[in-house]
Every structure is written in structure tokens, then in C-alpha cells.
Computed example of a mutant assay.
Amino acid sequence: MSQNIASHQWENRVLLVLTDDTDTTTFQNQIKEFQSHENGLTDRKLIVYQIKKHSYTVGLKDEAWQDSSKLYKTYKTAKAPFEIILIGLDGGIKLRQSHILNCEELFKTIDVMPVRKEELRDKKY
């Protein structure tokens, strides 16, 4: 799996879930929230990166973790032990927060974006 988030530009939206500890309730609940809405994530072309200080994995399953601190160092800005970032199709950061992101809020945020509106129009035809 590529560590290069830019490789997803114009193909996928990216969710970065950064944590200091994958055993925290906050992190575990965030992943469960996404797992319970996988169809909505797929429909919105979302790829989830789970990132901790020295490793990362792509997806929501128990995938193998890759050794690297590059993503954590590049994207972690909050002093909070948990952070979530939404990167749009254009590669820009669309949302950043230090608390659990529920999928209803996530989907509302994405569904008002111009490219998403275009995707929905194209689906109708």
C-alpha cells in the first residue's frame, strides 16, 4: 500500500484516523463507526488509513501494519491523542477534528461538495 496520499487524488477521498494508541476507546469506537457504514464509505469513494506513531494500515479490517512514521509526522497536528482528517478528491483537507466523527456528519460534509453533487447527478443517468 502506498504511503503517498496524493496517489489517491481524483480517485478516492481519504480518511486519516491518527492515534497515539489503538487500544483507546475513542479509536476503537471510531473504527467501529466506520465499519458499520462501509457501504456509505464505499459509495463516497472513501479509503481509511489507520495511523499510529510508527506504523499505518489501509482499510478497516485487521490488515498488516506497515512500519513508517511518515504519515503520522506529516498529518498529526493536534496535541490530542486522537485526530481524524478528511482529504477530498482534490487532495485538500476538508475536515479535521480531535473527536469521533459519526458517519452522518461525515456523509453530510461530503454530500454538499461540488464533486460529490456531480457524482450523484451522474448516477441518476
Rank of each mutant, 00 (worst) to 15 (best):
Ser2Cys: 00
Asn4Phe: 04
Ala6Gly: 12
Ser7Asn: 10
Ser7Pro: 01
Ser7Gly: 10
Ser7Leu: 13
His8Gly: 00
His8Trp: 02
Gln9Leu: 04
Glu11His: 12
Arg13Phe: 05
Val14Asp: 08
Val14Thr: 09
Leu16Arg: 02
Val17Phe: 01
Leu18Trp: 04
Thr19Ala: 10
Thr19Ile: 11
Thr19Asp: 06
Asp21Trp: 03
Asp21Gln: 06
Thr22Cys: 10
Thr22Gly: 05
Asp23Cys: 01
Thr24Lys: 02
Thr24Gly: 06
Thr24His: 02
Thr25Ala: 09
Thr26Ser: 00
Phe27Glu: 08
Phe27Ala: 12
Gln28Leu: 13
Asn29Cys: 12
Asn29Gly: 02
Gln30Phe: 03
Gln30Arg: 08
Lys32Asn: 13
Lys32Val: 12
Gln35Thr: 13
Gln35Glu: 09
Gln35Asp: 08
Ser36Trp: 01
Glu38Pro: 03
Asn39Ala: 13
Leu41Thr: 07
Leu41Val: 03
Leu41Ser: 08
Thr42Ala: 14
Asp43Arg: 00
Asp43Ala: 12
Lys45Thr: 05
Leu46Ser: 08
Ile51Asp: 03
Ile51Lys: 03
Lys52Glu: 15
Lys52Val: 07
Lys52Cys: 15
Lys52Pro: 03
Ser55Phe: 00
Tyr56Val: 01
Tyr56Asn: 02
Val58Gln: 15
Gly59Tyr: 04
Leu60Met: 08
Leu60Tyr: 00
Asp62Tyr: 05
Glu63Ala: 15
Ala64Arg: 12
Ala64Ile: 09
Ala64Met: 08
Ala64Gly: 04
Asp67Phe: 14
Asp67Met: 14
Ser68Val: 05
Ser69Thr: 06
Leu71Asn: 04
Tyr72Gly: 14
Tyr72Gln: 12
Tyr72Met: 13
Thr74Leu: 07
Lys76Asp: 11
Thr77Tyr: 01
Thr77His: 11
Ala78Asp: 14
Lys79Cys: 00
Lys79Asp: 15
Pro81Leu: 14
Phe82Ile: 14
Phe82Trp: 07
Glu83Gly: 01
Ile84Asp: 01
Ile85Ser: 04
Ile87Leu: 10
Gly88His: 02
Leu89Ile: 07
Asp90Ala: 03
Gly92Asn: 06
Ile93Trp: 02
Arg96His: 00
His99Asp: 12
His99Phe: 14
His99Glu: 13
Ile100Gly: 07
Ile100Gln: 07
Leu101Asp: 03
Glu104Phe: 07
Glu104Met: 00
Glu105Val: 07
Glu105Ile: 05
Glu105Lys: 14
Glu105Thr: 06
Glu105Ser: 14
Leu106Thr: 10
Phe107Gln: 11
Phe107Cys: 13
Lys108Pro: 04
Thr109Gly: 11
Ile110Leu: 08
Ile110Phe: 06
Asp111Cys: 04
Val115Lys: 14
Lys117His: 05
Glu119Met: 07
Leu120His: 06
Arg121Val: 15
Lys123Tyr: 10
Lys123Gln: 15
Lys124Met: 15
Lys124Ala: 15
Tyr125Pro: 06
